[in-house]
């Protein structure tokens, strides 16, 4: 991995909340052990439809990756897993409360993070943190870190992209610590640093003659 002044740690899975103490925002993380993918269709099925988890917690691990791999099934039923990258996590917040209760996850990996409100309300009480993927799109590097596809669940109903993929990984990364155990957000910290420059960049531009309904002039707003 490239030279950097940023701190780098390697975490052995499964982790306890204690293992996550002292992880600072912006630390580079690599993982070893068991993870599983799950996104909207998994949440819908497990929570909204009440199916629960398809396997015991120990088998899935406690790291939920918001991911659909670029993968196919070979004619003999074996897996052809190429690249893996995350999908944007903010869309999944409505399921988080029930999801943490069901899955007891300690780490959620995704793209773009969530808000510090969400971290404080749902992650902190469960002793969990959020790791963001890097880029985005280090799909080939992450693909290299996958040592074994353990199994897949709900492949028929949900399709390859939305199914649960249970994966054993080694030196799997890089990720960045986006939320810590106090619920702080790296993205929000960076947004705050950029805000004054942004304000200056807008000087000399002109608001549109015809406004859009609901439009504001608050440059600290985010889409999520």
């Amino acid at each position: 991995m490239a030279n950097t002044k940023l701190k780098t740690v390697r975490l052995q899975l499964p982790v306890s909340t204690d293992d996550l103490k002292g992880l600072e925002l912006g630390t580079i993380v690599y993982l070893d052990g068991r993870i599983f993918t799950g996104r909207e269709s998994v949440y819908k099925k497990a929570l909204d439809e009440g199916a629960g988890l398809p396997a015991p917690l120990g088998e899935l691990g406690t790291v939920n990756f918001h991911c659909s791999p670029a993968a196919s099934i070979n004619a003999d039923g074996s897996y052809n897993l190429g690249a893996v990258t995350a999908t944007a996590s903010f869309r999944f917040k409505k399921w988080l409360k029930a999801w943490f209760e069901l899955s007891q996850c300690k780490i959620i990996i995704g793209k773009g993070g969530m808000t510090s409100d969400i971290y404080r309300n749902f992650f902190v009480p469960n002793g969990a943190i959020y790791l963001t993927t890097v880029g985005y799109g280090t799909g080939a590097l992450l693909g290299r870190g996958i040592k074994r596809v353990v199994t897949t669940y709900w492949r028929e109903e949900l399709g390859l992209a939305q199914a649960i993929w249970v994966l054993d990984v080694e030196n799997f990364g890089p990720f960045l610590v986006e939320s810590d155990l106090n619920g702080n957000s790296l993205f929000e910290r960076e947004n705050a640093k950029i805000a004054p420059r942004l304000q200056a960049a807008y000087e000399g531009t002109r608001p549109a003659t015809m406004a859009r309904y609901g439009e504001t002039d608050d440059k600290t707003d985010e889409l999520i």
Binding site: S68, A70, A83, T85, T87, T138, G139
Partner: peptide
């Protein structure tokens, strides 16, 4: 590796 650069292809 001849693998896709990003999994969101």
């Amino acid at each position: 590796d001849r693998r896709a650069m990003c999994a969101d292809t």
